[in-house]
Computed example of a mutant assay.
Amino acid sequence: MDLPYHTPLTPALQTRLGLDPTAPLAMADRVRFSELDVLNHVNNAVYMQWFERLRIRYTQDWGLSRYMGAGHDPRIVIRSGQIHYRQEMRMDEDYIVTCGCTAFRTTSFSLAQALWAGGTLRATFDCVLVLLTADGAARYPIPEAVRARFIAVDGAHEETARPGVA
């Protein structure tokens, strides 16, 4: 099977490729020579770039930001994140990065991201993203349409905010 790069993968294709569970957004690519370190495997920092690339596409596709640097789009910042490296990646391996919201509050949401290769989970990245106004001075509420998509497409749930936490 030819793996389509840089194109959202359908849930059916994700399943055929061994991803379990499937994700709201998944895209494939291939390891490049420039992503290797002196040990001839993918440098740990590159995983974060792969996760970031899909995370930006996700926030664009879900209608959170166009990343145009102007206007009223929110700033989207990582409040916290945890990566778990499970198995190394090597030159020319095909991989799939996935992304989906698991929970949200008024101005923040949690994303679960995963990296798959050959039907094997290679790394995960779980993070909390916060929306800020364009100037960064205040919190920015998640638009209702995005909240609805988090529920309908991602299967996310709304968390009740703790006092003082959005």
Rank of each mutant, 00 (worst) to 15 (best):
M1S: 14
T7S: 08
P8S: 04
P8K: 03
L13A: 09
D20Y: 07
P21G: 10
T22K: 06
M27R: 14
R32F: 10
F33Y: 15
D37C: 07
N44S: 11
A45E: 08
Y47E: 02
T59L: 14
S65W: 03
R66G: 15
M68I: 09
M68G: 14
G69M: 11
A70V: 10
H72L: 12
V77Q: 01
V77S: 08
I78C: 11
R79G: 15
S80F: 00
G81Y: 00
Y85D: 05
Q87P: 00
M91P: 00
Y95R: 01
Y95G: 01
I96P: 01
T98I: 05
F104P: 03
T107A: 15
L111R: 11
A112W: 04
W116R: 09
A117F: 02
G118V: 11
R122M: 10
V128Q: 09
V130W: 00
T133C: 02
D135W: 05
G136F: 01
A138K: 08
R139D: 11
Y140L: 01
I142F: 00
P143I: 08
V146S: 05
R147D: 02
F150I: 07
A152R: 13
A152C: 04
D154L: 09
A156R: 07
A156H: 07
H157R: 14
H157Q: 13
G164Q: 09
